[in-house]
């Protein structure tokens, strides 16, 4: 039975490994895209413009309130149309086709971004106001304050929350198997069906995900330790 997992011509090992690489690629891209959405969302929520706050509020409420599977389906069947609509705004009239990878990244990134928005917003607010005042008193410009005080501090406060968002993102990529992108879940689902060995392949999938989450947990712990290197411990 284990030869089904081998790398030979009758084994799914190669596919599963490729699937793991694909899961990592989608997760990382989606997480980074999510950070972009999250930063935009957080700045919108913290801005004084009612319209911007409203848009960001709708974004986080809808995306966090609708099942991920539905978000992915809606983007899969409408993502190209939406991108083309955006393209038209910028004067591009052609037909834009998004492949399964970009759709997956866009969908999971959109979900990831909704959660990142809240994390980043909380972290920005956690930066003590006194520090910003102090920086201003030192004569720093707004840009310098952002670069030297706000961003490094925010990053430190946001890291634990972003770690959680990363785990969510990684697990959400399992749902993009519906777009037929060959990531871990898709490969194991196809293999389980075609070999009639569901237990073997879903267990393998679980192990692969556990491996990825463990590695990334360690990585985030290290990052947190590094970010907190200047903080005194009680």
């Amino acid at each position: 039975m284990l030869e089904l997992l081998s790398f030979g011509p009758n084994g799914w090992g190669g596919q599963l490994l490729g699937g793991a690489a694909m899961t990592v690629a989608v997760s990382v891209s989606a997480f980074l895209l999510g950070l972009v959405f999250g930063s935009l969302g957080a700045s919108a929520k913290l801005s004084r413009s009612l319209a911007l706050t409203g848009v960001a509020e709708v974004y986080t409420t809808v995306v966090r309130g609708v099942p991920e599977l539905l978000v992915i389906y809606l983007l899969f069947f409408g993502g190209s149309g939406a991108v083309m609509a955006v393209g038209r705004v910028f004067g591009y009239e052609g037909y834009i086709e998004l492949n399964a990878f970009s759709i997956g990244v866009l969908a999971v990134g959109l979900i990831s971004g909704a959660y990142s928005t809240e994390v980043i917003r909380g972290a920005v607010q956690a930066v003590p106001h006194g520090q910003i005042e102090a920086a201003r008193a030192c004569g720093m410009s707004r840009w310098l304050i952002l670069r030297r005080i706000l961003v490094p501090q925010t990053l430190r406060y946001a890291l634990p929350g972003l770690g959680n968002v990363w785990q969510l993102t990684l697990k959400d990529t399992a749902l993009i198997s519906v777009t037929a992108l060959a990531e871990i879940m898709r490969v194991s689902h196809v293999a389980a069906g075609s070999t009639r060995q569901p237990f073997l392949f879903y267990t393998t999938a679980a192990v692969l995900y556990l491996l990825l989450t463990t590695v990334s947990t360690v990585a985030f712990e290290r990052a947190e330790r590094y970010a907190n290197r200047g903080v005194r411990r009680a």
């Binding site: 697990k171 959400d172 194991s188 689902h189 569901p198 237990f199 879903y202 679980a206 995900y209 989450t213």
Partner: peptide, 23 residues
């Protein structure tokens, strides 16, 4: 806790539904 928080729910559902029924 580690196993169930570290794997996607979809895998857990398939493992319980299709996987367990195999035995």
């Amino acid at each position: 806790v580690f196993v169930f928080r570290g794997t996607p729910l979809l895998v857990q559902i398939f493992l319980i539904y299709y996987g367990m029924g195999q035995f």
